[in-house]
Design a protein around this nucleic acid. Sequence first.
DNA 1: ACGTTTTGTGAAACACGGCTAACTTTTAGT
DNA 2: ACTAAAAGTTAGCCGTGTTTCACAAAACGT
Lengths: 129, 129
Amino acid sequence: MALRESGEDYLESIYVLSKRQGTVRSIDVAEYLGVTKASVSKAMATLENSGYVEMGKRDVHLTERGLEIARQMWERHCFFVGLLEDAGVSPEVASQEGCHMEHCLSEESFEKLRSMLGREDVAGPTTEA
Amino acid sequence: MALRESGEDYLESIYVLSKRQGTVRSIDVAEYLGVTKASVSKAMATLENSGYVEMGKRDVHLTERGLEIARQMWERHCFFVGLLEDAGVSPEVASQEGCHMEHCLSEESFEKLRSMLGREDVAGPTTEA
DNA sequence: ACGTTTTGTGAAACACGGCTAACTTTTAGT
DNA sequence: ACTAAAAGTTAGCCGTGTTTCACAAAACGT
């Protein structure tokens, strides 16, 4: 069951928020992504069904599988945002637009692009939120 | 009335096909994009309403407004495909994935990125289809 | 412990962009 | 000119991902 762009965004935001604040609730994701809590509720149900997240009483967390994707997305996010910022794009715009670019490439293509552009330093998953 | 990704794809394909063969019919667009003629028919109605295309008896053509966007998209397409190919991605995959990247950036950001990466040579709108 | 506020869920609706199927219109072969 | 094929349109459906609104459940202040 392939993940769509929006699913990847949800996973990524759970990942970022959990690094930032420990536990993550639906409402946090909703605020972070700028969608309603109903949307998050629906999306979480789907993602849980597909084995990407698990929902506790009052929190959501990534499974192994979900974490892998989330980390990958975040890595790409940082890469593209860094690239755009280096090109002179403002951080706000770079962040907005990077958000979309991160979903366009296969893992293989992304690695090739990154290695050609030689930005391994700023693109790792360890970059802070 | 903002254009969506799919709308931009339709405009771009009309542009490419018109360079390739002169006049463009709906069916050509359908084959080029791999969608049904019904989908094209619907999309053309919308694009005509918004002033991006005009439909003759048996052809479609871009308005000034549509042409501007189509050219821009094609320019970006060539840029991203070239970039990916240079990175070692196969032409087929590069073309597929470049198709999505071209919709992510604002004009301003794209220009900045292009000028930083210095690929003006291959990214112009004069590149052949 | 009670009531208020916050958080989460469920139902119904909508927009979008595809599809199929049936139909109409145009084009083209003979 | 007639018929058959090709092209275009229309109507209706589906999946995805939103929304709003109403409600349920949990958390929190006092």
